[in-house]
Structure formats: structure tokens, C-alpha cells
Simulated scan of single mutants.
Amino acid sequence: MTPFLAVEVTYGGEFEGALDNINALFDMPTLVELGPLSINRTILIAFLMTGIAAFLFFRAFKSPTVVPGKLQSACEMVIDFVRGIAVDIIGPVKGPKFVPLLTTFFVFILFMNLAKLTPFLMLPPTSRIAFPLVLAVTAWVIYVSVGIREQGFGGYFKELAFPPGVPKALYLILTPIELISNLLLRPFTLMVRLFANMVAGHILVVITLVTIHVFLYPRPGLPVGILALLASPVVFIFELFIIALQAYIFTMLTAVYISSSVEPAH
């Protein structure tokens, strides 16, 4: 089969050439080489969004005032929101110590996700599996470490493998399920949930914009372009909701897992 095609297009004349490889959509060519490190577009976007988040919080709390300005109020609202999650789930005694960690998770994921709708970027780093993977592994290391610190190495894994209040005959079935669930499925679902939602949302935004670009011309396909243009605000508002929701879900579930390590079941 020849790689060259000649296709009759109703409104575009003839196309002669090679179709792009679909894998090109997933390739991120290296832009900068720093010895063994390679920096591509995704990494640059992550650096940019992290820098913006750090700058905003630095400016907000560089010289805090009793009567906060708009930026300080906004950042304080974010911290108070995450503090509420920590206190409600982990508890009023041990919860506050995890507020910095959970705030970092929430803000980092939120800003990475926002790159999806940021002009000239339009690519959330969290749609690349490496970012959700690192975040999920970090959460896993933290809640396992907290469990070992709070209950001791043997006590923590005994609690995982042999939940109290269960008939001993069921441990043959329950123990492997509990170990797999707590040590493998928890980080896996954290990773997949964030990754899948960001990929799906990114595809939805791209399809909407491409449809507007292709069909918004005075020709028979014009109604499709108009419909896509009218639907685009709804799509973007929906994606903003998903962006914030995924940051919240990841933070909340991390708090739940830490809580299970801090306060074992009895």
C-alpha cells in the first residue's frame, strides 16, 4: 500500500501527500538538552504554572495585613478550604500538621490542570501519565510512612493485613485483598483518575476548538461551526469545574488515606 493518497475533497480540492502518524499526537520532542536531562513542552508548561502559583502565594504573604487585599484573601481562602478538608477527615488534633502538604497537592494539581484552558498553552501536564504517577507515588510514600511512624512497622502492616473485628476464617480471603487494595490499588486509582479525566477533558476542548476552526466558514457546514462556537463556553465552564474537582478529589483522598494511617481501625 502506497503511503501517498489522492483524496477528492468536496470543498478543498485535492490532497496529495502522506497522512501524519497518529503517534505524533503523543510525542513531545525535546526542546532543551541539559546533560542527561531533556526538557520538552510539557516540562516547560509545568515550570511555568508552578512559577505562577509560587509567585502568587509569595506576593500574597510577603507582607500580610490584618485586612487582606484581594490576592491575600484568595490565597487564604484556598488554605482555609484545604485546612477544612484536613481537620474534617484527619481530625482537629493531627489534621493541621498536614495542611501544608495537602495545600501543595491541591494548588499544584489545580495549576497544572488550568494549563488546559490557558491561551497559548492548552496542554495540562497532568494529561501526561508521568505527572499523575509521581503525585500518586508521593501520596503513597507519605501515607505509608505516616502509618509506620504512628503504629510501628509491624503494627501498621498487621493492621492492613488483619483488620480487627473480622472472623479469622475470612483472613485467607481478606488479607490479600486488603494488602492489594491499600498498597497497590490506592495509588493506582489516584493516578488513573487524574490522568484519565485530564486526557478526556483535553480531547473535548481540542475537538471543540478544531470544529470551530474547520466549520466556521460560509459553506454548508457553517451550522456545525456555529453550534460548536455556542457550545464552547459551556465546554470551558464544565472543564473549569472538572479542573477544580480533580484537584479536590486527589487532595481529599490523600487526606482519607493519611487518616487511615494516623487512626487505625479498632
Results as ranks from 00 to 15, higher is better:
Gly154Cys: 10
Ile109Gln: 09
Leu37His: 03
Pro218Thr: 12
Met1Asn: 05
Pro233Ser: 10
Phe105Asn: 04
Ile180Gln: 02
Leu102Thr: 07
Thr254Phe: 06
Val99Gly: 09
Ala46Met: 08
Pro119Cys: 05
Tyr11Ala: 12
Lys62Val: 04
Pro3Arg: 10
Ile89Asn: 02
Lys70Cys: 09
Pro119Leu: 08
Pro176Asn: 12
Glu239Val: 07
Leu253Pro: 00
Ala139Ile: 10
Pro125Tyr: 01
Met252Ile: 02
Leu56Arg: 03
Gly84Val: 11
Glu16Trp: 02
Val32Ala: 08
Phe26Gly: 12
Asp20Arg: 15
Ser261Arg: 11
Ser38Gly: 03
Phe61Lys: 01
Arg186Leu: 03
His266Trp: 09
Tyr143Thr: 11
Val93Asn: 13
Pro29Tyr: 12
Lys94Trp: 04
Val93Leu: 14
Asn182Thr: 15
Ile173Gln: 07
Ile226Tyr: 03
Thr10Phe: 07
Ile79Trp: 10
Cys75Trp: 04
Leu227Trp: 04
Thr251Gly: 12
Val78Gln: 01
Ile242His: 09
Phe81Glu: 07
Val137Gly: 15
Thr103Phe: 00
Ala196Tyr: 04
Gly147His: 13
Ile22Glu: 10
Phe250Cys: 07
Phe55Val: 02
Phe81Tyr: 13
Gly13Leu: 02
Ile148Val: 15
Ala139Cys: 13
Phe188Thr: 11
Ala60Asn: 05
Ala200Met: 15
Gly17Trp: 11
Pro64Met: 01
Gly147Thr: 10
Ser145Phe: 14
Pro125Glu: 00
Phe195Met: 03
His266Tyr: 15
Thr254Asn: 08
Gly95Tyr: 03
Phe188Ser: 10
Ala200Ser: 13
Pro124Ala: 14
Leu110Ala: 09
Gly35Ala: 13
Gly225Phe: 02
Thr251Gln: 12
Ile212Asp: 00
Arg193Pro: 06
Leu190Tyr: 05
Gln246Ala: 01
Phe120Gly: 00
Leu44Phe: 10
Asp80Val: 01
Leu179His: 00
Arg59Asn: 06
Gln151Ala: 06
Thr103Asp: 00
Ala86Tyr: 05
Val134Glu: 09
His266Asn: 15
Gly225Ser: 05
Ile249Gln: 06
Phe15Gly: 08
Ile129His: 01
Ala196Lys: 02
Val166His: 13
Gly95Cys: 06
Thr104Met: 14
Leu5His: 11
Val210Lys: 01
Gly69Trp: 00
Gly155Gln: 07
Leu133Gln: 03
Pro29Thr: 10
Ile22Phe: 07
Val166Gln: 15
Ser259Asn: 14
Gly69His: 02
Leu5Ala: 08
Pro233Gly: 10
Gly147Met: 14
